[in-house]
Computed example of a mutant assay.
Amino acid sequence: MRELMPLLIKGTLVTVEIAVYGILLSIVIAGVATALRTAPWRPVRWLGNIYVEIFRGTSLLVQLFWFFFVLPLPPFNLALTPFTVAIVGLGLHYGAYGSEILRGALRSVPGGQYEAAIALNMPASARMRRIVLPQAMINALPPATNLMIELLKGTSLVSLITLSDLTFRARQLDESTFKTAQIFALTLVIYFVLAQVIAFVMRRFERRFSSHVARRAVPGIAK
């Protein structure tokens, strides 16, 4: 354990960094893609749908290889560092799934909520911010938590583009020590612990967000 853990911890730190940046980027991309797909203009909706179908319908590993090996070639001539490729690849891939989650959550808001806001002559931006999005987010948070855990597990693929993440370190130690059972057992435990941390944080956030929405929705409850 004393020999194996230091290198595995180094790999874990890389995995955590990639996962955090990848999750943040995927959230931003999911929001932008959902805005495109719900826009009133058909060409804009097509653009959002094309992005989602391409990144949802192709392999994450192939996407990472494409960004890492193809973009530096003509006519693109765009060389990205392995770290950047990992974050961009994960963000684009899981952002497409996140857009589907958010779009479904928006559709789950009862139509009467929209009609009531329109009857109150509420502007579209205020209607979305104060009525639609809070309810949609409550429905979107549980599947979004699952997607974040999937993104964490998807970081194991970045070892194939030369990043020294947790999986890369585990394979490196296995080749040098041949302690396969011990090394990959520790690796499984580390991934499991990281997934539980994400689940715990998101459950806390979901409870606090739900209670905040409830306080705003029910008159007379103290802030």
Rank of each mutant, 00 (worst) to 15 (best):
residue 36 L to D: 13
residue 39 A to K: 06
residue 68 F to A: 03
residue 31 G to K: 08
residue 59 S to K: 00
residue 60 L to M: 14
residue 67 F to L: 15
residue 43 P to Y: 02
residue 31 G to Y: 10
residue 57 G to P: 06
residue 52 V to R: 08
residue 105 A to S: 15
residue 35 A to K: 09
residue 85 V to P: 06
residue 38 T to P: 11
residue 72 P to Y: 05
residue 61 L to Q: 01
residue 29 I to R: 09
residue 67 F to A: 06
residue 64 L to E: 02
residue 87 I to N: 12
residue 43 P to W: 02
residue 83 F to Y: 15
residue 72 P to G: 07
residue 76 F to D: 14
residue 44 V to D: 01
residue 67 F to W: 13
residue 40 P to T: 13
residue 52 V to W: 03
residue 72 P to K: 08
residue 93 H to N: 13
residue 30 A to V: 14
residue 97 Y to Q: 11
residue 59 S to G: 02
residue 61 L to M: 09
residue 61 L to A: 00
residue 49 N to Y: 01
residue 44 V to W: 14
residue 99 S to L: 05
residue 56 R to H: 10
residue 56 R to I: 00
residue 29 I to T: 09
residue 50 I to R: 00
residue 52 V to P: 00
residue 82 P to V: 02
residue 64 L to T: 01
residue 79 A to I: 04
residue 31 G to A: 15
residue 27 I to A: 11
residue 82 P to T: 08
residue 84 T to D: 06
residue 99 S to I: 11
residue 35 A to T: 08
residue 59 S to C: 01
residue 100 E to H: 06
residue 82 P to H: 00
residue 42 R to T: 09
residue 30 A to I: 09
residue 27 I to Y: 07
residue 67 F to G: 02
residue 78 L to A: 13
residue 61 L to C: 02
residue 91 G to D: 05
residue 104 G to Y: 13
residue 90 L to H: 07
residue 106 L to V: 15
residue 89 G to Y: 00
residue 43 P to K: 03
residue 90 L to Q: 01
residue 78 L to N: 09
residue 52 V to A: 06
residue 65 F to D: 00
residue 75 P to A: 11
residue 68 F to D: 02
residue 66 W to V: 14
residue 60 L to Q: 04
residue 45 R to S: 10
residue 44 V to G: 07
residue 63 Q to C: 01
residue 66 W to E: 03
residue 44 V to K: 08
residue 91 G to V: 10
residue 32 V to A: 12
residue 34 T to S: 15
residue 68 F to H: 12
residue 88 V to Y: 05
residue 47 L to G: 03
residue 30 A to L: 04
residue 46 W to F: 15
residue 28 V to T: 09
residue 106 L to T: 13
residue 102 L to R: 01
residue 80 L to R: 11
residue 49 N to Q: 05
residue 72 P to L: 08
residue 90 L to K: 00
residue 49 N to P: 00
residue 55 F to D: 11
residue 103 R to M: 10
residue 29 I to F: 04
residue 50 I to G: 03
residue 95 G to D: 07
residue 52 V to T: 14
residue 42 R to C: 02
residue 56 R to S: 05
residue 101 I to Y: 11
residue 73 L to S: 02
residue 89 G to I: 05
residue 68 F to G: 04
residue 58 T to W: 00
residue 75 P to N: 10
residue 50 I to E: 03
residue 101 I to C: 04
residue 62 V to N: 02
residue 90 L to P: 14
residue 66 W to Y: 07
residue 69 F to P: 00
residue 36 L to M: 15
residue 64 L to D: 01
residue 76 F to Y: 14
residue 80 L to G: 04
residue 70 V to N: 10
residue 40 P to R: 11
residue 86 A to E: 00
residue 98 G to M: 08
residue 66 W to H: 08
residue 38 T to G: 12
residue 55 F to P: 04
residue 80 L to D: 04
residue 56 R to E: 04
residue 70 V to H: 00
residue 68 F to Q: 07
residue 45 R to K: 14
residue 54 I to L: 07
residue 77 N to K: 13
residue 83 F to V: 08
residue 93 H to K: 10
residue 37 R to S: 14
residue 59 S to A: 02
residue 59 S to E: 01
residue 41 W to F: 15
residue 29 I to D: 07
residue 83 F to Q: 08
residue 37 R to I: 08
residue 106 L to R: 12
residue 91 G to E: 13
residue 62 V to Y: 04
residue 38 T to E: 05
residue 74 P to I: 10
residue 68 F to N: 12
residue 67 F to R: 01
